[in-house]
């Protein structure tokens, strides 16, 4: 069955994050509770969500004796230019722009202290100080070269597949407001998704952070009902959720159809993280 390859240190898989850093990301995020000037920018929401997701990925691989390299991670920003935002550590040059998750774990930009509310075991909640690693800060300038970014990701995953032809296929997660300024991203998305390992085609998931305050849509199985053309385009670009991920989504309470795609529209940051956790939580992690 496709998408069932074991993910382990000897058979790792790759995640590539594409982060929209264009000027339009300065606009307010429509899914926030706050309105007007109080609403956070899409860029700020994106940075928060991606930092949280990377933290989750690290924690999935963390053991008492260190972080196991189940995942190799690439992060590409696109705005003023298309560029990798994390660099391979010394000794890993020549393997493409993917970084073992353990290197990411050891090198956040900084650790912030945040208050985290958690159950106290007696039916109430208690606040605890937790360390929150930050790898990226918000950034928003120039146009949205999404096509170039998808092309860049294609190069990265092709190099990865050459070395890991039998593994669980790479997962590309594009976080954007959807307004490409350099052509038709659908064509580039199809090309990216046409590459495959023996275990399945490359997965492309899209997270749409929009200024619109239309209700959030998670893992839809049809474009009808999505509020605008950018959302419909990002939906079309997205891969179908593989069986195991669909099952995981169902277990987390999502109503997912057979044709559910890895796409979220205007989800609030919390929902976005839950979605990403599902998308990045293959049940066969060893």
């Amino acid at each position: 069955m496709a998408y069932s390859a074991e993910i382990s240190r000897s058979a790792p898989t790759a995640f590539v994050f594409l982060l929209d850093q264009s000027a339009s990301m300065q606009d307010a995020f429509g899914g926030a509770e706050e309105r007007g000037d109080a609403a956070p920018s899409k860029a700020r929401v994106l940075a928060d969500v991606v930092n949280r997701l990377l933290q989750n990925l690290v924690l999935r691989c963390a053991k008492e004796d260190g972080v196991r390299d189940y995942f190799y991670v690439g992060v590409v920003g696109y705005g003023e230019r298309v560029q990798p935002l994390v660099r391979p550590a010394e000794g890993f040059a020549g393997k493409g722009d993917l970084v073992p998750i353990s290197h990411l774990a050891e090198r956040p930009l900084r650790l912030e202290e945040r208050l985290h509310r958690m159950p106290d075991g007696q039916g109430g909640t208690t606040e605890r100080r937790v360390k929150f690693p930050v790898w990226f800060d918000a950034h928003a300038r120039n146009g949205t070269p999404m096509c170039q970014a998808l092309d860049y990701a294609t190069q990265m995953i092709r190099a990865w597949i050459d070395v890991h032809p039998r593994g669980f296929p790479p997962i590309v997660i594009n976080v954007s407001d959807g307004e490409a300024t350099d052509g038709d991203p659908l064509r580039f998305a199809h090309r990216l998704r046409s590459f495959a390992t023996d275990d399945g085609e490359v997965l492309l998931f899209n997270v749409h952070l929009s200024a619109s305050s239309a209700p959030a849509v998670e893992l839809p199985d049809a474009a009808a009902g999505l509020p605008d053309k950018d959302a419909r385009l990002l939906f079309q670009m997205s891969s179908l959720l593989p069986f195991a991920m669909r099952a995981a989504a169902e277990q987390e309470g999502y109503a997912v159809g057979l044709d559910a795609r890895g796409f979220v529209f205007n989800a609030d940051p919390g929902a976005l993280v839950r979605f990403l956790e599902i998308g990045t939580r293959p049940s066969n992690l060893r």
Binding site: V58, K63, E64, A105, V130, K131, P133
Partner: peptide, 16 residues
């Protein structure tokens, strides 16, 4: 005691 000497990710993992 072991967890107190570990980096942020191990500390977070123990909390889980």
């Amino acid at each position: 005691a072991r967890a107190q000497r570990l980096p942020w990710f191990a500390e977070a993992k123990v909390a889980q």
